[in-house]
Computed example of a mutant assay.
Amino acid sequence: MQLIPPSGFETQPWKNGGGITHEIARKEERGRLLWRLSIAEVGSDGPFSAFPGLARILTVIAGEGLLLDTPEGRLSALPLAPLAFPGDLPADCTRIAGAVRDFNVIYDPRRIRAAVRVLGAGTESALGAAPGRLHALLCLGPGCRLGDTSLPEGAVSLVDHDANAVAEGAPALVATLDRI
């Protein structure tokens, strides 16, 4: 298990000045991104960055949410409702009511199958192991555990073995990355 506290995230401003990204972890192979986990702080409305050849799952973790206008129609990114869409889909973002924080999983869908699920407060879930599988547990509040290990609020734990995730006092997110 690898524990990454918020102080270990790499923070960088967006090129368009509309927010900042806190990169939690990433994996590359042969100079190409395999997957990236991050938290974005969306401070203003505007275009989303494009990630050609990649896919993304966005989950709002603070704020009222985002409306994403795309050539394929409007997508609603609402609190604790994972939203999957192509990384190269042009999207113009409108915040529903003020600033938003969201958790992002960006991945290469030719090499990775990804999913994000919400553990509601007071629930637990078994994280199963499989060859090439990695789980990332994001604690959205106090009272989060992985097995017997208590995790600090805002921290992310990366685990590639069987473990039991518990969200006691607040929800948590579990991102699962499976190598295809």
Rank of each mutant, 00 (worst) to 15 (best):
L78Y: 00
P82M: 15
L177A: 06
A155G: 13
L3D: 03
A25F: 15
R74H: 03
A91I: 03
G8R: 15
L146N: 07
T94A: 15
A55E: 10
G98M: 09
A25P: 00
R26S: 15
L140R: 12
T176H: 02
L137M: 10
A77T: 10
I106T: 04
G141P: 00
T59N: 13
L67S: 14
A115K: 12
R95H: 08
R101G: 02
F51N: 01
V42P: 02
A163C: 11
A99I: 11
I24G: 09
A114F: 09
E28T: 09
L58Y: 02
Q2H: 08
R36M: 08
F103I: 10
L134D: 05
P152D: 01
L67C: 13
L37Q: 04
G46S: 06
I39N: 08
V116P: 00
T94E: 09
A172T: 07
L33F: 03
D92T: 10
G132W: 01
C144Y: 03
L137R: 09
A170Q: 08
A163D: 04
I96R: 12
P79K: 12
D45T: 03
W35D: 00
C139K: 03
A77P: 00
P152L: 14
L80Y: 03
P171A: 11
G63N: 06
R145K: 15
A172D: 05
L134M: 10
G63A: 04
A167E: 05
A81E: 07
G147Y: 02
L134K: 14
L173V: 08
V159K: 10
P6L: 15
T70Y: 00
L173I: 06
L177K: 12
L67H: 13
A136T: 06
V118N: 05
H161I: 10
S76V: 07
F51D: 06
R110C: 11
F85A: 13
L134N: 05
T123F: 01
I61M: 08
G122D: 02
A136E: 10
L89F: 06
A130Y: 04
P47S: 14
I96T: 10
R36Q: 14
A121I: 07
R111Q: 11
V105D: 02
